[in-house]
Design a protein around this nucleic acid. Sequence first.
DNA 1: ATTTAATTGCAACATAGTTGCATTTAATCA
DNA 2: TGATTAAATGCAACTATGTTGCAATTAAAT
Lengths: 145, 145
Amino acid sequence: MFNFNEMKKAAQILDELGFRKTEIRLKVLDHLQKVNKAVSQPELEIKFNKFADRVTLYRILSAFEAKGIIHKIMDAHGVARYALCNHKHCMEHQHHDEHVHFNCTECGDVVCLDTVKIPALKLPKAFSSAKINLNIEGICNHCQK
Amino acid sequence: MFNFNEMKKAAQILDELGFRKTEIRLKVLDHLQKVNKAVSQPELEIKFNKFADRVTLYRILSAFEAKGIIHKIMDAHGVARYALCNHKHCMEHQHHDEHVHFNCTECGDVVCLDTVKIPALKLPKAFSSAKINLNIEGICNHCQK
DNA sequence: ATTTAATTGCAACATAGTTGCATTTAATCA
DNA sequence: TGATTAAATGCAACTATGTTGCAATTAAAT
């Protein structure tokens, strides 16, 4: 996984990964850095309305994921979301892909809870785990009253 | 949640829940009881090819879920799957909807691991959890060599 | 047997995601 | 700087999952 602790500028990141610094890619990466949430293609499509084609957004997200700068998760509605991981915890666990994601039923936001770690699970014999995804649905800090 | 420990016949279950005993509903419920896996509408559509309309299957699954005899989960590919819960563990945790689901990357099967329980998680303050779903991807017992 | 509400089938639609291909453009090179 | 080229984009078309409205059917009650 890419080291985001240094909080590099989007342009520099694209450069180092061998991507061209196109306006859309810069905007998408910049947005991901700013919001610190797991965003979906439909969300980006609305955000960058008429600025980029749907397909382009899908391809940008796939390309970023392939390079490991973002990770893909399925949210509670079965929609793919992508997020940067810029916390130390994520770096440590890069090989397990163990993430806790919080789906807010109020605002719909999905955030990566880097501070919550998944305790080890005892699987039944003959089952081997490669990847774990823990989805929590509830009310997030912003929507709590 | 319905008590499946008694392993009632499909017809009796439909009866008790106020559903009509139509052939499709009997078949679907019977299938869910037999396979003991989380099945999707597309799978049922293939299984019951030309016997039931796509929409009918979606509606049967929704109706069963609304009555609480099956539960709905999103699998690793974002597809809705439904499964009966006939183990004691599931009964105990009925109000939390805490399930561990194993997605086999070999055969594609999704099974509910009733024996694995999710340890309590410490969420950051101001986050409140209503529902937890833990998806594990890996190789299941049948595909293990 | 008649009635009626539940169930089904069909058509049409909505949304997420993918693929092929022609066009554009960022970055390299001469 | 201008020409070259591979990367990136846009468009059209397609697939899959899932939903809604409505008319036709049917299980079950009277």
